[in-house]
């Protein structure tokens, strides 16, 4: 049910794009207005969310420690898993953000006949997630060629490296394929693994279907429809230079692609996709673990009712005396 709804939503978006551009020829709406609106929502939304998170105080220093603490000089501290300084905490975050360190921690063990223990790691989720995120980044970088004139050398380099397989004209890029595969894997995993399926919400399927549609339309545009790239570039440059162009000659599927991207941008700040920003603000990861070395201040700290020693001594005076314990007031 959740899956059907999400899939239906994405199909409806596709139909909308087809109807809008393929039939009604609303190119200005789909090629200019909606992208601008989406971008505004994206930037505004992300800034709003991050500012709102950052405005909430961190009252306590509560990082999760995943390695040996810094204590005695002859005990080797695990600097990346239990960072004591700001720099070490930064490096921990780098590992987390760029390499998905925590997902890599999944392990599995197996006992062979005779009791011999085999330990290994279970890397599927890590590999799938990493493949998806990195390829998505590379594909984004490649798309810069539509938005910058002249195309920077680094972008061209990425694009040519990406097409090293030299299959097809234009060359099939490795990252697009891996991206599509990784998304399929993440989707299948959600459908097949019983626990993950149980916890999944429509909000988990929808972005997957949306991203799959974006990649699929992109691949179609490049390899099947072979739309007029100069028209595409015209639209893209128009968006960047605030002199909108309609891009005559671009296939209607291009507008579907653009529409999906617009939806993704607009949807982003209001969804779980904000984990991209949230990971940097997670108090269990981004703090140095110098709890006992430097005092952390709670900005909203307030006095509480305690049981003072005086009250305690008053209540237990006789018993303290019996026990021969020294008193403040005899």
């Amino acid at each position: 049910m959740k899956i059907v709804i999400s899939l239906a939503a994405v199909l409806a978006l596709f139909l909308l794009a087809w109807l809008g551009v393929g039939v009604l020829d609303l190119k200005t709406l789909f090629g200019t207005v909606l992208p601008y609106v989406a971008l505004a929502l994206f930037v505004g939304g992300v800034v709003y969310r991050v500012v709102r998170w950052a405005a909430v105080p961190v009252p306590f220093r509560i990082p999760t420690t995943c390695g040996q603490q810094r204590s005695l000089p002859w005990i080797k501290q695990s600097r990346l898993e239990n960072p004591h300084t700001g720099l070490e905490a930064f490096l921990r975050m780098v590992l987390e953000v760029l390499c998905f360190r925590s997902l890599l921690r999944n392990t599995k063990a197996e006992v062979r006949p005779g009791g011999r223990l085999i330990q290994g790691s279970s890397k599927w989720l890590w590999a799938g997630a990493l493949a998806f995120h990195w390829c998505f980044l590379v594909v984004l970088v490649r798309h810069l060629r539509f938005f910058i004139e002249p195309v920077p050398g680094c972008v061209q380099l990425v694009a040519s490296l990406d097409g090293f397989l030299q299959v097809g004209v234009p060359a099939m890029t490795v990252t697009s394929l891996v991206l599509f595969g990784a998304l399929l894997f993440l989707l299948l995993r959600r459908l097949v693994t019983a626990q993950v399926r149980y916890i999944s919400l429509p909000a988990d399927y929808f972005p997957l279907f949306l991203l799959l549609s974006i990649v699929a339309t992109g691949l179609l545009l490049r390899h099947v429809v072979r739309t007029d790239l100069s028209a595409v570039k015209e639209v893209a440059m128009g968006l960047v230079t605030f002199s909108p162009a309609t891009g005559e000659g671009a296939h209607w599927l291009f507008y579907a692609h653009l529409f999906f991207v617009s939806v993704l941008l607009a949807y982003f700040p209001f969804s779980k996709l904000m984990h991209m920003g949230g990971v940097f603000l997670s108090p269990t990861r981004n703090l140095a673990i110098n709890n006992r070395a430097a005092r952390h201040i709670n900005p909203w700290d307030y006095p509480v009712k305690v049981h003072t020693y005086e009250e305690y001594e008053e209540e237990f005076r006789e018993k303290l005396k019996t026990a021969g314990v020294p008193l403040e007031k005899e």
């Binding site: 998170w53 626990q195 984990h275």
Partner: peptide
């Protein structure tokens, strides 16, 4: 609590239900 603990606010928002914790 959402306004006092960033941990709470952020953890309410960013879970992607990847299932890494499930088992």
């Amino acid at each position: 609590r959402l306004s006092k603990y960033r941990s709470f606010q952020v953890f309410m928002d960013i879970c992607v239900r990847c299932g890494a914790c499930a088992d």
